[in-house]
């Protein structure tokens, strides 16, 4: 048994290297009083070391839920994962024991959350919260952990780290708090970082600083990064590839430049058109009409069809598969050619 495990863990020399993380046909549903909310309905994506995948989508598209499923921090119940695989370094994490998964969290996969103020414990000093990573995972003493915490704070460029290590989260500014979140994620030099809207709660100027820092540290450590966001501006600078999610599915996935140049899905197209642009000053901003669907009653066929300007009868009956567009792209639209061609 162990022998077989060993073989499956190590890829054959001539086979292409397995991606760092590969999510296959992931389904997540929530059992609520109003019925079953299907938050994630068959998501596939992969990230390699040193690569940045941006998962784009509006609220309720399932981008955060799929990330939490990868991290293993969904509350189950009410959440359930009826189907799918989450392969990390070739091993399916959904088949691991709770203890095995816990040891991966923080050490190999770390997560950065959106609102650093509520995501940090208000009654513990930042030094304690940073040092805790070393104390729990590496068994360091309180004193050594504190020294490491100061080092980390220096690394994410928090001024006067030595004096501020005993301060509490509320004593830091928003940008500094997010740096602390980043430091905490980096503590054990994980192989993959999942950043769930890391800059949404910040000022625009601070957003750029925090994103730059994150991108720089990612390069330095050659980490994989999954960047969850609804901000197309953030994505363009740092992402290598983009997966656009809608109603729990990936509707388009492509290298970053292709998507900006020529979207292959009407939803992506709508998103790009709704970015304010200087050359359209004075004109009314484009908006995708309608609202995202209720996840307990996802429309039949393509979930986007009630809002899609190109919808035909087939869109209301058939769920579109992810059609390959060129070599490294896919679009889940029956009319991807038409969308691209316009």
């Amino acid at each position: 048994m162990t022998v077989i495990d060993d073989i499956s863990d190590v890829p054959a020399p001539d086979a292409p290297l397995a991606p760092l993380l590969e999510v296959r046909d992931l389904h997540v549903e929530f059992h609520t009083r109003d019925g079953v909310a299907k938050a994630v309905n068959g998501v596939n994506y992969s990230v390699n070391a040193g690569e940045t995948l941006a998962v784009l989508g509006e609220s309720g598209s399932g981008k955060s839920v799929s990330a939490q499923a990868v991290m293993g921090i969904l509350d189950m119940p009410p959440a359930r994962i009826p189907k799918g695989e989450i392969l990390f370094q070739g091993r399916d994490m959904l088949k691991m024991s709770g203890e095995e998964r816990r040891k991966i969290r923080g050490r190999k996969i770390a997560m950065i959350f959106q609102d650093a103020l509520s995501s940090l414990n208000p009654v513990l000093s930042v030094g304690y919260q940073l040092g805790e990573m070393y104390r729990v995972h590496q068994g360091l003493s309180r004193k050594d952990a504190k020294a490491k915490a100061i080092e980390l704070m220096d690394r994410v460029r928090i001024p006067a780290a030595k004096e501020r290590v005993g301060d509490y989260p509320h004593q830091f500014s928003g940008g500094m708090r997010q740096r602390i979140m980043i430091a905490m994620a980096l503590a054990l030099e994980p192989e993959l970082i999942i950043a769930d809207e890391p800059t949404t709660a910040l000022d625009v100027t601070v957003q750029a600083q925090v994103m730059d820092l994150l991108a720089e540290l990612q390069r330095e450590y050659n980490m994989g990064l999954i960047l969850i966001t609804h901000d197309l501006g953030v994505v363009a600078d740092v992402a290598d590839k983009i997966a656009v999610m809608y109603a729990g599915r990936i509707v388009e996935d492509a290298p970053v430049h292709d998507i900006y140049a020529k979207p292959a899905h009407p939803y992506t197209k709508g998103l790009l058109q709704s970015i304010p642009r200087l050359d359209q000053k004075g004109q009314e901003l484009y908006a995708i009409k309608g609202l995202p669907p209720n996840l307990t009653r996802i429309p039949s066929g393509c979930a986007f069809n009630p809002r899609c300007p190109m919808a035909q009868d087939v869109c209301r009956t058939d769920v579109p598969a992810l059609h390959p567009v060129g070599t490294a792209r896919g679009s889940a639209c029956h009319f991807w050619k038409e969308t691209l061609g316009e």
Binding site: K103, S118, S119, L120, N121, V136, M184
Partner: peptide
Amino acid sequence: RADYLRTAVAKGLPRRRVIVNH
């Protein structure tokens, strides 16, 4: 249900520590 508790779980802390310390 607090966010900081989710963070504590994401840090890979044992359940006991999440509950008692956080």
